[in-house]
Simulated assay, not measured.
Amino acid sequence: MYTVILKKNEEKRLLAGHPWVYANEVSKIEGKDTQGSIARVTDFQGRLVGYGFINHASKIIVRILTRDEVIIDEDFFYKRIKSSNDYRVHLGYDNNYRVIFGESDLLPGLIVDKYGEYLSMQVLSLGMEVRKEMLVRILVDIFKPKGIYERSDVPVRIKEGLKEVKQLLYGNVPERVEIIENGIKMQIDIINGQKTGYFLDQKENRDNLKYYVKDKDVLDCFCNIGGFSLCASKYQAKSVTAVDISEAAVKSVLTNAKLNGYTNITTIQADVFEQLRQYRAENRKFDVIILDPPAFIKAKDSLKNGYYGYRDLNTTALKLLKKGGFLITCSCSQPLTLNLFLEMLQESVLASKVYGRLVEVRSQGKDHAILIGTEESSYLKVAVIQVLDV
């Protein structure tokens, strides 16, 4: 077993809850083992900090699994995975949810989503990669799924010395899987859809539309396959306009609307920024506008440009709202902190020359809980702003 000895005082962040040991925090490494194996981490004085996966090829040289002296074997992972699922079941999750959210479930580098009778799995660390067969075996035993599909087609794997991969791991997975979210039938694509198939982190935020959309004209920007649009229709919106640049996405919105018998949804395949500018030129107004864009900021070096992108988008949307209307705006950019997000919205309100009030601030779903001390697990911000009739 490797023993990783930290430099003086480098253990403080780890003891506060952060699970990553960076290579530049290490004083020396003793012992020998294979990459992806379990390493012991100590402070400079030799006191135990924890045990975790080691990977010399990554800047994150160790991902902590536990702070305790325990045997890390298949039973260890079985109990961790079962505990993660038990937490979700206790909260009422059933048909579709995030089963494992990596570090937040003390399973660093592992994502598992449940879509009905199927599982979608994403492996982001070498330690999980070398245990993939064992993990599949555990998932099959706990969930008895019809199929498990791997969606590890993400660039972050390259930083771990791994290749991007998509593959069937167990059973069979069809091209389309039907789920029920917030009482709404939806067909999702595990094999080629966004992320692991769908954006489960917004489930509660989509259902929260029930407070804002009844008898209203709703504009859903970056609609993807229609999660927000369908909820707006369910909660008796007068009309819903769903806009996305993806042809496949807008087709999926109509398919899902038909599944539920919703007839008040219109789709537009267009660049959202251009479509908003067109509405502005037409002096078109809406009662509710939803902004759920892809991440504009993937790393801290793109923070400035991404910040301006969010500000411009929100400023334009605010100008398209009727008096008394609501803007429901989101950011999934992790480097854009909550404070920066709210600062950006304040600047947007000022630039749009409207009077606005912040109605509520929300976050990612409870199946995407945030590990305290680990800012990387906190990424989704949602705000509701009302334009006042002054």
Results as ranks from 00 to 15, higher is better:
Tyr2Gln: 05
Thr3Met: 10
Val4Gln: 01
Ile5Cys: 03
Glu10Thr: 13
Glu10Ile: 11
Glu10Leu: 12
Glu10Asn: 12
Val21Gly: 04
Ser27Trp: 14
Ile29Trp: 11
Lys32His: 14
Thr42Pro: 04
Thr42Asp: 03
Gly50Glu: 02
Phe53Cys: 01
Phe53Gln: 01
Arg67Gly: 05
Glu74His: 10
Arg80Phe: 08
Ile81Ala: 00
Asn85Lys: 15
His90Ala: 13
Tyr93Arg: 05
Glu103Asp: 11
Leu107Pro: 04
Glu133Phe: 14
Glu133Lys: 15
Leu135Trp: 11
Asp141Glu: 15
Glu150Trp: 08
Glu150Thr: 03
Asp153Leu: 02
Pro155Asn: 07
Lys159Phe: 11
Glu164Ile: 15
Gln167Glu: 12
Val173Arg: 05
Val173Met: 05
Pro174Tyr: 10
Pro174Thr: 09
Gly183Glu: 02
Thr196Ile: 06
Gly197Ile: 07
Gln202Tyr: 10
Asn205Val: 10
Leu209His: 08
Val213Gln: 04
Lys214Arg: 14
Lys216Phe: 09
Lys216Gly: 07
Val218Gly: 04
Cys223Arg: 03
Phe228Arg: 07
Ser233Pro: 02
Ala242Asp: 01
Val243Trp: 02
Ser246His: 08
Glu247Trp: 13
Val253Asn: 04
Leu254Thr: 07
Thr255His: 04
Ala257Lys: 04
Leu259Thr: 02
Ala270Ser: 10
Gln275Tyr: 15
Arg284Asn: 00
Ile289Met: 02
Phe296Lys: 02
Gly306Val: 11
Tyr308Leu: 11
Phe326Pro: 02
Phe326His: 13
Cys330Ala: 14
Ser331Asn: 06
Pro335Cys: 11
Met344Asp: 00
Arg357Lys: 15
His368Gln: 07
His368Trp: 11
Glu375Gln: 11
Ser378Asn: 15
Gln386Asn: 08
Leu388Met: 14
